[in-house]
């Protein structure tokens, strides 16, 4: 296999969590990548057309991005991740992603398979991916290690920027939301753009200190087995006393979020609202909910 191939990366779901890792890895190996553009209505529409109606909005968006890339690249990176830690799980969508895409489109999917419960670690997955692209074990491993360093650096920078926002004297809201939703143009950005317009600083629960205490989540629940939701719980514990309120944002219909957010509303004593985003076309209802929530946080006394 030669190096002249291009790998397509859909700008959706786990892209937002691992983009630095993925892109650095391919860069180390000298492979070109093509990343789909920010989510727009065309991508969403194409995603809806190619997905069963029960899938969640984030999934539909992902399928739309794959649809965008399918004729433009040689391979598409579609991760299959079952578990990232022993005894822990991801939402079943992430284990099913490979099969769903394979059955929807006629595309070449790059082998990327992590299942720590069965002994397949991230490192092994990357070595295998490198080998499939024609690189040796050592070369692939070195590329992975270099990419891992880049990932750490970026995570640290994101965390330090967040700390800066935490120390500013503005109304602060903690956005508890999966990375793939908080960064998406048609999901999280609708919310964060509006909040910024109201002069509110957004603290992201999905920005995690790579050197921070990772066991804080136990104060809320010890039994939760979804890795990404556990990370969000950890952030709630870390940030909740430094913010004015919490916004839980999820896409419809998200199984893990519907359970975890409900649990949080019983266990955490803080002003909070839950916002559920579906394939809506107007944002007036969203603005009303956000604006009144901010009014409450600021304890505005308009009548005096």
């Amino acid at each position: 296999m030669n190096n002249k191939i291009t790998i397509g990366i859909p700008r959706a779901l786990l892209y937002y969590k691992y983009n630095v890792l993925w892109q650095s890895f391919f860069k180390e190996l000298g492979i070109d990548t093509l990343i789909s553009p920010e989510t727009n209505y065309e991508i969403l529409e194409n995603g809806k057309k190619n997905t069963m109606s029960e899938a969640c909005l984030s999934m539909k968006i992902y399928v739309g991005h794959v649809d965008y890339l399918k004729d433009k690249v040689d391979y598409i990176l579609v991760p299959r991740i079952v578990s990232l830690e022993k005894g822990m799980k991801l939402c079943t969508n992430f284990s099913a992603l490979y099969d769903i895409l394979n059955n929807t489109f006629d595309i070449n999917i790059l082998n990327y398979n992590i299942d720590v419960d069965k002994g397949i670690t991230e490192e092994l997955a990357f070595i295998k991916m490198g080998q499939e692209l024609g690189f040796g074990k050592i070369l692939s491993l070195n590329a992975y290690k270099a990419a891992k360093k880049e990932e750490y650096k970026q995570n640290k920078i994101n965390y330090l920027l967040q700390e800066k926002r935490l120390n500013r004297n503005k109304t602060k809201v903690l956005l508890v939301c999966h990375t793939y939703n908080s960064n998406d143009n048609l999901v999280g950005k609708l919310v964060t753009d509006n909040l910024k317009e109201f002069g509110v600083d957004v603290i992201y629960a999905d920005i995690i200190n790579p050197d921070g205490d990772r066991l804080l989540y136990k104060n809320i629940s010890k039994a939760l087995y979804w890795t990404y939701n556990q990370e969000l719980l950890n952030s709630i514990e870390e940030y909740k006393d430094k913010v004015d309120g919490i916004i839980f944002l999820s896409t419809f219909p998200c199984g893990p979020d519907s359970l975890v957010n409900e649990m949080c509303s019983h266990k955490i004593d803080k002003k909070m609202i839950t916002i559920l985003i579906d394939e809506l076309s107007t944002i007036e209802g969203l603005q009303t909910r956000l604006e009144s929530f901010i009014d409450i946080l600021r304890k505005d006394r308009f009548y005096e």
């Binding site: 002003k271 209802g285 009303t288 929530f293 006394r301």
Partner: peptide, 12 residues
């Protein structure tokens, strides 16, 4: 005490 402390609204 004349301050709004919480609210909820129906979904769509």
């Amino acid at each position: 005490k004349k301050i709004v402390t919480d609210y909820a609204m129906n979904t769509l």
